[in-house]
Simulated scan of single mutants.
Amino acid sequence: MSNKVKNNHLLSYPLIALASSGDVDAINTVLKHYEGYIATLSTRQLYDESGNPHLCVDETLRRRLETKLITKILAFNVA
């Protein structure tokens, strides 16, 4: 499974098929592929006690998004 992610940054069909069948390594590869996007979606602007803004990843939201992705992967019907 060395070409799980091709040069065009798309997930391969065999990887998707393995992930949808419940293969843990394939699911982890899909999560790794989308980790930057998930981190971007879960980034929030927080303020410290002085009122200075800071960007940080909301870990609860990040975990919820990962869980939702895993749920959708396992429910995906590969034709």
Rank of each mutant, 00 (worst) to 15 (best):
M1A: 15
M1C: 12
N3H: 13
K4S: 15
K4N: 15
N7W: 11
N7S: 14
N7R: 12
N8R: 03
N8Q: 02
N8C: 04
N8A: 00
H9Q: 07
Y13I: 12
P14S: 06
I16W: 10
A17I: 02
L18W: 06
L18I: 08
S20N: 08
S21F: 07
G22V: 02
V24L: 13
A26G: 08
A26F: 07
I27G: 10
T29G: 00
L31Y: 07
L31P: 04
L31T: 02
Y34H: 13
G36E: 12
Y37E: 06
Y37I: 03
A39C: 09
T40H: 15
T40Y: 15
L41G: 10
L41T: 01
L41I: 03
S42F: 03
R44V: 15
D48W: 04
S50G: 00
G51V: 08
G51Y: 08
N52K: 15
P53G: 02
P53H: 05
V57C: 08
V57I: 14
D58S: 04
E59S: 06
E59V: 07
T60D: 07
R62Y: 14
R62A: 14
R64F: 12
K68P: 01
L69I: 10
L69M: 14
T71W: 11
T71C: 06
T71D: 15
T71S: 13
K72V: 09
K72M: 09
I73Q: 00
I73M: 05
L74S: 00
N77Q: 07
N77T: 10
